[in-house]
Every structure is written in structure tokens, then in C-alpha cells.
């Protein structure tokens, strides 16, 4: 339904807060990291600070869009009767969900590309050496976060609660992704736990693919499992009204 997609794109671009946190902030953060130091750091496994943070910031964008913005938007649509109104037209409300997910995914993908390009052009960070692996990891990470987002939208009785759950999940997700302390600086136990969180697995997989090795099956499976289980539960639990 191109009309819905067009409308949802317009609406997405009218959310200044979302554009700030989802697109601008990660790029600013990347710039700050890049200016802070460009020497390889043995504490970071021989990577520069900005290299370490490229996958973390991609995960950050995905999380803002998938776990915070998407469920809030969907829960608002349900709460306000937008989905119910749509159910009386020839267009099924599921199309609106599809349009929402498509525009969010497109924005996430575009921001990820911007992050990679900025890192490459401004700070000389090499592009991922194992590009197909990187792509697989990105898609699985996005799917896992989308699944979580849909599950929040299904469970939250009101839009405010969806927003609150999204914010509450944001911190542990991003902690294990290494936003506050890069995974390389975490202890073995903490990193071990992180491997079973969607973003812990995602960031490791993205780092591996960047370095030129295929991520372990375990990391890919962790992300796939989150995606499948959450999406399955969400479709079972989602209420249209």
C-alpha cells in the first residue's frame, strides 16, 4: 500500500525527537569518539575507540527505533482508535503495522549506512571486511529488536506504558551492547551474560564481521531466537482495539 507507506514516512519525519535520538545523536557521539583518540588501544583489543563504537552506535539506533519508537507508535495507534478506524476500510490494519515497520527499518538502515560512512570518511575506520556476514548480523539484530518492540506493543495496555517498558529495556540492552563500557573492557562473566542478550550478541557479531571473520553460530542463533520467539508471542498477543 504505497499511500500508507508515504504517509508513515511523512509522519516519521515529523518526529524531531526521534530524528534527534535515532539519527543525529549516534552521529554526534561517533564524531566525539573519533575526535577523542584515534590510537589503537590494547584495552580495546587493539581497536581505536571509534572502531569499537561503530557497532555499538548501530545497535543504539536500532534500539531507539525498534524498542522505543515503534511500540509507542503502535500502542498509540491502538489506544487512539486509529487501527479500529482502519478496520472499517478496505485496507487491513496489519498493513499499517507493515508500513510502520518498513519505514522504521528503512530509517535504521539509512542511519547504519551513515554511521559506517562517517566513520570511514572522517576517521578512517575500515568498512566491514566480511560484508555478507555484517549484513546477516545487521538483519538479525534488527529482527530481534523489532520482535521485542512488537512484543512490547502487544503487551502494553497503553501507549505510555509501552514507552516506559521501552525505556526500561533500553538501559540493560545498551549496557550489554557496551555503550557505557565497551565489551572488551567487561569481565569474562559479564561478557558471557551479554552474549545471551540480543545486543551483546549483535555487537560481537558486527565486530567479528568487521574484522573479517564470520560471527559464531551461537551469536547469530541468539539474535534469531529473540526475533522468532518475540514475533511469535507478539502475533499471538496483539490486540487491535
Amino acid at each position: 500500500m504505497p499511500a500508507l507507506l508515504k504517509t508513515e514516512t511523512k509522519l516519521l519525519l515529523r518526529e524531531p525527537l526521534l530524528l534527534f535520538w535515532g539519527v543525529l545523536f549516534p552521529l554526534v557521539l561517533l564524531t566525539v569518539m573519533g575526535l577523542a583518540g584515534d590510537k589503537p588501544d590494547p584495552d580495546l583489543g587493539g581497536l581505536t575507540l571509534v572502531q569499537t563504537y561503530v557497532p555499538v552506535l548501530i545497535a543504539f539506533t536500532f534500539t531507539i527505533l525498534g524498542v522505543s519508537a515503534l511500540p509507542t507508535a503502535l500502542a498509540t495507534y491502538r489506544e487512539r482508535g486509529v487501527l479500529k478506524r482502519l478496520a472499517t476500510t478496505p485496507v487491513r490494519p496489519s498493513r499499517l503495522l507493515g508500513a510502520q515497520m518498513t519505514t522504521s527499518a528503512a530509517m535504521a538502515a539509512a542511519t547504519a549506512v551513515l554511521i559506517l560512512l562517517l566513520a570511514r570518511v572522517a576517521f578512517g575506520v575500515p568498512l566491514p571486511r566480511e560484508a555478507p556476514a555484517f549484513l546477516v548480523a545487521v538483519v538479525l539484530a534488527a529482527a530481534a529488536l523489532l520482535g521485542i518492540g512488537l512484543l512490547i506493543a502487544a503487551l502494553a495496555p497503553r501507549a505510555r506504558i509501552a514507552g516506559a517498558i521501552g525505556t526500561m529495556l533500553f538501559f540493560p540492552l545498551m549496557f550489554f551492547a557496551g555503550l557505557w563500557a565497551p565489551r572488551a573492557t567487561m569481565g569474562a562473566t559479564l561478557r558471557g551474560i551479554g552474549d545471551y542478550t540480543p545486543l551483546g550478541a549483535a555487537v560481537q557479531a558486527l565486530q567479528d564481521a568487521t574484522a573479517g571473520v564470520w560471527p559464531s553460530a551461537g551469536q547469530l542463533l541468539v539474535m534469531a531466537a529473540y526475533a522468532v520467539v518475540c514475533a511469535f508471542l507478539a502475533t499471538r498477543l496483539f490486540r487491535w482495539q
Partner: peptide
């Protein structure tokens, strides 16, 4: 069938 519902709304920024 065209329907006008009592409590239905549109997205605020539409």
C-alpha cells in the same frame, strides 16, 4: 459501508 466512529482518531501529526 462508510463508518464514522465515536472514538476513532488519526495520528496527531497527520
Amino acid at each position: 459501508v462508510g463508518v464514522q466512529l465515536q472514538d476513532s482518531a488519526l495520528p496527531d501529526k497527520l
